[in-house]
Simulated scan of single mutants.
Amino acid sequence: MHYTLHQLEIFFKISQLKSITKAAEELNLTQPAVSIQLKKFQDQFPLPLTEYLGRKIHITEFGKEIADTAENILEQVASISYKSAAYEGKVAGKLHISVVSTGKYVMPYFLSDFMKKYPGIDLTMNVTNKSEVVKSIEENTVDFAMVSVLPSHLNISRIELMRNELFLLGKDNPSKSGNHLTTKEFKKLKLIYREKGSATRQAMESFVDQQKFTNHKKIELVSNEAVKQAVIAGLGYSIMPIIGIKNELKNKEVQIIPIKNLPISTNWNLIWLSSKKQSPAAIALSNYVKENKMEIIKKHFSWMEDRSLLP
């Protein structure tokens, strides 16, 4: 057999994404180039690694075993590079971060200059809902997580990043007075919720319950972007973090609806298990965020203090 590391990388990426097109995009290759390398790799085995059902590619059981082996080989090769960099006094290694979906508007700004400073670090950032983020910390599969609500059942360390405020948003203000929405007016709104497991969903449900509102008209969507687009389209109203609607507020596509007991204020936090032995890459990120967070907030998030965006 004469397969190459390049072929191993391509096959492993295909097995992850279940798509030649997506693998090509992620590896910055053309789709024909990926298909050719997959065929050359496949031709070296007596059993098929993939099969097609309709137009969709599937990984065979034998292919899954080869993919697992390929992953181990690629990790060992990467570790050689990391060890080499360490002997040269450079910080290198893998860094895994899990971020709640609205945190995608925040975390990249804390990582951008850090990744430029440490080019030997390979970053994986998974964006999902709160329950999955907490699960990744609980199972120790990530170095850090970014959350706005701290998991009380875990012994964690944290770096407080910045304020997170949630407002009631709509395409227009349904208040007859054009001012603060009354309880009676709120009860008539069709509310748009995030999916269960989302911290934004929990905050919204908590607000509705605490105010003793009985609102039965609701829509449920599975991402912050989907909720935002639904609000812009006029499908309903939602309680959302202001961090994700900067341009929409400035362009007057949505507006903040004043109502008693809003906004809800929390804080974004970078957290990790207190018992976790941090890698050099993780220690470097902790130190970088502590030293630079105020400058990053001032540079990228000062717009949140712009009162002209608020009612």
Score class of each variant (00 low, 15 high):
E138S: 11
K104N: 13
F110L: 00
G120S: 06
P119C: 14
K39D: 10
L8N: 14
I57V: 15
K135F: 09
E25K: 11
L8E: 13
M125D: 02
I121T: 02
F45I: 08
Q16H: 02
E138L: 01
P48N: 06
K40F: 04
Y109M: 01
A23N: 09
Y82P: 05
M107Y: 06
T102W: 14
S98G: 01
E132W: 11
E132N: 12
L29M: 14
M115V: 04
K90G: 05
E61M: 03
L17V: 00
Y109N: 01
N140L: 07
Q37E: 06
P32N: 07
K130Q: 15
S84R: 10
V142K: 13
H58G: 05
L53H: 13
G54P: 10
I14L: 12
Y87C: 11
A33K: 07
G89P: 01
L38C: 12
E139H: 12
K94I: 01
M125R: 01
I80G: 00
A145S: 11
P32L: 09
I66K: 13
N28D: 03
K13V: 15
I57C: 09
D143G: 05
T141D: 07
D43A: 09
M125Q: 08
Y82V: 14
Y109C: 02
L111W: 02
V77N: 14
E25Q: 15
S81H: 15
E71G: 06
N126M: 02
G93V: 04
T128K: 08
V91E: 03
N72A: 13
I14K: 10
A85S: 01
T21L: 15
K94C: 03
E61R: 09
R55H: 12
G93N: 00
T50F: 08
V106N: 11
E75Y: 09
K117E: 05
V77L: 10
L123G: 02
E75M: 06
S101T: 00
K130Y: 15
K116A: 05
G93P: 02
E51C: 04
V34N: 11
L74P: 03
I137L: 08
L49G: 05
Q16Y: 04
M107C: 10
V100G: 03
D43Q: 12
P119S: 08
F110G: 06
V34P: 05
S15R: 08
E88F: 06
A24T: 14
Q76Y: 13
T141C: 03
V100Q: 03
E65W: 10
A92N: 04
K56E: 14
D143A: 04
G103E: 03
K135C: 03
S98F: 00
A86H: 15
V134M: 08
G63H: 06
V106E: 14
I36G: 13
G93K: 02
N28G: 06
G63K: 09
T30L: 02
L27N: 08
V99K: 01
T141V: 02
Q76K: 11
D143I: 04
F62N: 04
V91G: 11
I80M: 12
L111E: 00
K56N: 15
I66G: 12
H96R: 08
R55K: 15
S84E: 15
F114A: 05
S81F: 15
L47G: 07
F110V: 02
Y118F: 08
V106H: 12
P46C: 10
A67F: 06
K90A: 11
R55P: 09
L53R: 12
